[in-house]
Design a protein around this nucleic acid. Structure first.
Lengths: 230, 230
DNA sequence: GTCTATAACCGGATAGAC
DNA sequence: GTCTATCCGGTTATAGAC
């Protein structure tokens, strides 16, 4: 079994306790929500002392960082079937996006927490922070695979920027999903279908001569931005 | 003096205390940051009892709702010069976006708090919540004015959706600005210049026949989305 | 040195008297 | 509409066990 982003190989006593606390916490978050789950309760359920949690996790919010990684692993796994079978860019992207929502569904209630920190530049929990880099990187790689494994020919310069853009796109979709109260989350799925269609078309249009000036401008902007962000 | 979104006309005893607390709080937030400002300190500085603040504001975070409104009023005021003088769409949008960043600058340190709630659908503080509707509405109207006052002819169907899109765009810029650590926030200003240019071009391209299928798809998607969100 | 437990602290929030 | 006293839960200090 390959080492995942969520749990490095070691299995020392400490690592086990750490994993125990994390899983207990995530289960409780899923069942009762974040605010309603007290640190004292997590400690009690995990059979450790309240203060002990802080030996493994800097704060209650940091328990969420663990969720990031866990969620990514599940997303990658759920994406494998489509990526193995489909060669159409549209179908691949659609499959990966659906996999994201499906695997996240159990955590819908408390996923909002992830975004809370998105705004705080000083928070290590922000998806843009250095601490989140490994997870973000791995997720971006997944989108790169969506492109490289498809039969659609994507120009090299675009190919370099698109995975990052798709990562940003998928964050936007998650934000929408968070607010989506429709039954079975149908609105989110419809949004995904429509936007994937649009993205595929826009990529297809990228080589049209008429749009060249816009395309170069966009590319310049993107490389410009990556300068000190990545 | 016209009634603003931030402060309705009344000036009863209560309204005065409320305003006093709000301004004291925002001043302290600006000076020391949000986390470092305790409710007890706000109460002390405002000369009221700690518990009394909760008579006027449901929570510490709710003090931020007051900031939303105040910030909007300043943004609208700072936008007036450009909107009165310029007729070029590009210049108008650029001016309004710059005004946004300029007026927000003093609050850069704690503006992240605004976004924290963006992710939480249950929070009345979310910019997408019903409670935020008046402010969001007023801000969207500002972007509508950017369009209607320009000499650029925008097709009716686009005209109906664009203000909402521009509002979303401006939220994205603010998110970028929150994370921008460059001196004088130059990266944000550059991003604004480039994206405004792009937006203007894309609007210009909207009527090109080749792009008609994409355009209709986008419009359908947008009207679809507004269905139960607005 | 790695890990665990207890007690206390601090600040947001609430109850209820005036 | 304002105050005081108190609660509650995240967090920290610190002592000690393995």
């Amino acid at each position: 079994m390959p080492t995942t982003v969520a749990e490095p190989g070691r299995t020392t006593k400490g690592e086990q306790t750490r994993a125990l606390i994390l899983h207990t916490a995530l289960d409780l978050f899923r069942e009762r929500g974040y605010e309603e789950t007290t640190m004292r309760l997590i400690a009690h359920e995990a059979g450790v002392a309240p203060g002990n949690i802080y030996y493994y996790f800097r704060s209650k919010e940091h328990l969420i960082q663990g969720f990031y990684a866990l969620s990514l692993d599940e997303h990658v796994a759920a994406s494998q079937p489509v990526l193995a079978q489909e060669t159409d860019l549209r179908a691949r992207l659609l499959g990966v996006m659906r996999a994201k929502i499906e695997t996240s569904e159990p955590y819908h209630r408390f996923s909002g927490l992830l975004f809370k920190s998105a705004a705080d530049p000083s928070s290590p929990l922000s998806p843009f922070s250095p601490e989140s880099h490994p997870v973000r990187q791995a997720c971006t790689a997944l989108f790169a695979e969506v492109l490289t494994g498809s039969k659609t020919r994507v120009p090299d310069d675009l190919q370099a920027e698109l995975p990052n853009l798709l990562w940003l796109y998928h964050m936007g979709i998650i934000l929408f999903w968070l607010h989506d109260k429709s039954p079975q989350r149908v609105r989110t799925y419809r949004l995904i279908e429509h936007t994937v269609e649009l993205i595929a078309r826009v990529i297809g249009l990228a080589t049209v001569p008429l749009l060249r000036p816009i395309r170069t401008r966009v590319l310049r902007l993107l490389t410009d931005l990556r300068q000190d962000t990545s």
